[in-house]
Design a protein around this nucleic acid. Structure first.
Lengths: 369, 369
DNA sequence: CTGATAATTGAATCTCGGT
DNA sequence: AACCGAGATTCAATTATCA
């Protein structure tokens, strides 16, 4: 939640050039709020031979050992960088990884084995994917992101549920996201006009992850920084970043790119208070403020149930007394009830839900500072 | 490709009651053209029950067959049934497995380790998924299928590129499929009116897999037959099936169900075009596409009201934040408002209603279904 | 019978702070 | 660490009930 100030030695808003595992191991434990990782699908084996999983059997048609060895090497690499991430994550930090069917199953399994707790798998549906020209397979029109907390016990992770819902026609954001590929001006090109990085991710994708799972001021670590999409979006959205990239060419391109990013205004980034985060208001305070009178009768919206308001802030229905929630549940025969939304008072011939009074008190409290 | 006639002793179009590994090991090697597998997901649900906001209880999948002691136990089980499948597959046979984030990464890794060759991962996007009732995660709105050939050398697998196009542009060919849950008359119910199987799959899903990856007359093996969706669709589409199911109740229901299926004529073996409503456009997508900038101010047509655009797709007016609809209603003091028609952005000195941008987005999105 | 309204339901790893 | 109690939380589609 950004409440703990990171140690001074955190290299914030910088690009570290080097091996990500060594660089992460040099960072203090429990220091970042979020990780975004776009690991290579290729894996380096032995003397610099670049081996792709789907090329590993070009000259080893029936050699099961060779095939297994390449997956093993990739798995070992995956476990190592994931473990390094996990060490630098705060207890309630979350991690995002993006991949395709070539590597995402290895990554997901490794995640689970290391104790991460998967919260969602997210499908990035591409608006304009490369068609499958040979007609031998379905058009690969999506990639997969895994969103995971540090452990099953990390219940306090950041998720801006209401903000995402508000931007999505007041419907919960689903696990399938429709976002165009990174093209046009957004795509970094070198002096030769060629793209600088082969798999530059769209900023919209990063924006959605950071908006949903981080707060302004949070520290986001990207161990495979590439040309710095994570850094560019973090800067624009008022988040801090730590980027690690092995290739100097990419790191330089990332630095220049991020430097030109204009951060959004504080006002646009304010985190809207959710109902959960707002101060608690005892029902007794509502009575004391005169919104509801002791001795008054409350009903549900349709007037089928009723209860008497007692001066101590409890309700009475028949012989039973208890909180607005307890009595609301009782009269309905339900295991639970939110009394603020259930009970109504009659005002000017209309039934008014008592949550209205709580909202009024909260407005006064915040106005009074 | 169905070129090898199966041995006479293959138990075709029958449901075998028993353990799927033992039953598969009793089949001759290299005898089936396709496998469709819907294994247990190993959901790992918590202790308590989940209540909807209306306090009704979610009927969780807590059956004994979904319980595994550990990831290791689940992995061992997965490797065993996958190896048994691989043995009975013809050299050019393909295998489909469906799962969720709970198990699909384990399954995908095991597949690769055993020498299967992944051709695609397919996303089943649910039209009507169960919401996330506590607002703690993204709505889990999809499941994943893996489509794999027996080995990297299996170049002659069946894939009907043309058959799926079915007059519906290229939409059928993408790796993301939009299909409703199995409900209504299709959902098998017992004498008590309760669903027979907790996780019955929609026939539309099976129809797409079998039409794309098998020929009429091909033998399809389903080691987790359940209530026989694979068998019903195979029979309807003129394919043969071998179903294996451990629970007698499910097997009996499957037999009765399949017996009532009317096989289609050859000419009718086409994919039904997916019905598509106008895609819902999140305001967030309009921002991501660059039509509206975060930090920009929107006004109503006459410029009497204004609101700030936030990067998450919500608007802010004074202290209040919310969707374009909610804030539109708020500033006008109305109970409701269509934000698309109410809010305007200034472009070249003119006020442009934001619905203009939505129309552009719809054009882009409909190309992807 | 018809149309409107209410109830039901789906593979779910679904709260949080204080004591 | 376990317990307790306040109180926050749902979308689409089908089926059942009612006027």
């Amino acid at each position: 939640m950004g409440l703990v100030t990171p140690p001074q030695r955190l290299p914030l808003d910088e690009v570290i050039v080097g091996d990500c595992i060594a660089a992460m191991n040099a960072l203090p434990a429990g220091s970042v709020d979020c990780v975004f990782a776009d690991p290579p699908y290729n894996l380096q084996l032995g003397e610099g031979s670049l081996l792709r999983p789907d090329q590993s059997r070009v000259d080893a048609v029936d050699d099961a050992w060779d095939q297994f060895a390449s997956f093993e090497a990739y798995d070992a690499f995956t476990r190592e960088w994931l473990a390094a991430c996990r060490r630098v994550m705060k207890p309630n930090a979350t991690l995002w990884v993006i991949g395709s069917y070539h590597n995402i199953f290895r990554v997901g399994s490794a995640l689970q084995d290391l104790g991460f707790w998967i919260l969602n798998d997210i499908v990035w549906r591409k608006a304009n994917p490369m068609p499958n020209f040979r007609g031998k397979r379905f058009t690969n029109a999506h990639e997969t992101l895994i969103w995971a907390s540090r452990s099953a016990e990390s219940k306090g992770y950041t998720f801006h549920y209401e903000a995402l819902k508000g931007g999505n026609e007041d419907l919960q954001m689903r696990s399938d996201w429709f976002i165009p590929l990174c093209t046009g001006d957004e795509r970094l090109k070198g002096a030769d006009g060629q793209k600088v990085h082969p798999t530059q991710k769209p900023e919209a994708l990063l924006a959605r992850t950071l908006l949903s799972a981080t707060n302004p001021g949070d520290v986001v670590l990207d161990p495979f920084f590439g040309t710095g999409t994570t850094g560019a979006v973090a800067r624009r959205l008022g988040r801090r970043f730590i980027g690690i990239e092995r290739e100097t060419v990419y790191a330089e391109a990332a630095r220049a790119r991020i430097a030109s990013v204009e951060p959004l205004s504080q006002a646009a980034l304010l985190v809207a208070p959710t109902k959960r985060a707002e101060p608690r208001v005892p029902f007794l305070s509502v009575i004391e403020a005169g919104h509801v009178r002791a001795g008054e009768t409350l009903t549900d919206q349709r007037g089928r149930f009723s209860a008497l308001v007692r001066p101590d802030g409890t309700l009475m229905a028949g012989p039973a007394t208890g909180s607005i929630h307890k009595i609301g549940a009782l009269v309905q025969g339900l295991p639970a009830c939110n009394g603020w939304d259930f009970w109504h008072a009659e005002r000017k011939g209309q039934r008014v839900v008592i949550d209205t009074f709580r909202a009024d008190m909260r407005a006064r409290m915040s106005a009074a500072g």
